[in-house]
Amino acid sequence: MQPPKPSPVIEGSPQAGWIKSLRNPTGVGVLFAFYILMLIVFSILSPFFFSPQNFISITTNMAYIGLMAGTQTLLIIAGGLDMSVASVAGISGVVLSLLLGVGFNIWVAAGVSLLLGAFIGYLNSISVTRIRINPLIATLGMLNIVEGLALVMTGGLTRPVSDDGFSFLGSGRVLGIPMPVILMVISFVALYWLLSTTRFGRFVYATGGNPDASRLAGVPVNGVLTRLFVLSGVSGALSGLILVAMLGASAPTAASSNLLTVIASVILGGTSLAGGRGSVWGTLLAVLILGTLNNGLVLLNVSSFWQSVTQGVVLLLAVGLDQLRTKVLGD
């Protein structure tokens, strides 16, 4: 080898590595600023808004959505997409209640529901990685199948589920914090750890960034996607169980209307639909923002019809501004 050329500058210390691995930090910063601004505005407009109780109520209402959005973030970073996740939440509650009806122990039934979620996720992964159906189409198909089956199994009816131990999952508190929130936070911390410090996490970014190049560099691209689809199915099923525990009943389409909120949170959180870029913290912030927005509008007595409009506007604004920022400043 020739004598080394003037050595390039190595920036920062190695210790700063994990901080740098918070991807797209500017995007998350903008979101955070937006969140704070929203808190201030609602606090001024409504005397009931700024209180610990209200904050807890917001996070509790969003927790099961956050659970789905967290795993969806990883899946979208890897270049996938799971439109069936909310319908899986529906069917997992239905299966739980049906199994209870035939005398199963509730925890066994919950276990079966989670396995079913995993299985649906696995079927999705086969459609995408083996048969090579576009993820949007594959999981849209699955959404219809699963939702239809849930309706068939129940005749479209809501079924009560009452079990004190189980309802603790939905309404119990530990140190004053509701169980759904605890589960969501645990899930986000775990996903962050997985994504930012493990080999698997690196593979997730690589797979979404350039699947062909990744495969040639030895990344098991299909294996990564399969695991993420299964994880997404499990997170859907878990959300469904939490929802049942919160409501004390299962309904076949209980979570269906949340699908778009899940996807919107991931996108609003700065994850690129094209894959290869994104962070779970952005998604968590986005979940909080969308939850807070709905809550604030309720407190201001704005018709619920308008809430959907506002949510759409916020999504377009946030993503549009981010595009503009990238265009003007580069990143």
Binding site: N210, D212, A213, S214, L216, R277
Partner: peptide, 9 residues
């Protein structure tokens, strides 16, 4: 570009 680099990494 297509099969070598991961541009965003």
């Amino acid at each position: 570009k297509r099969e070598g680099i991961l541009a965003e990494l």
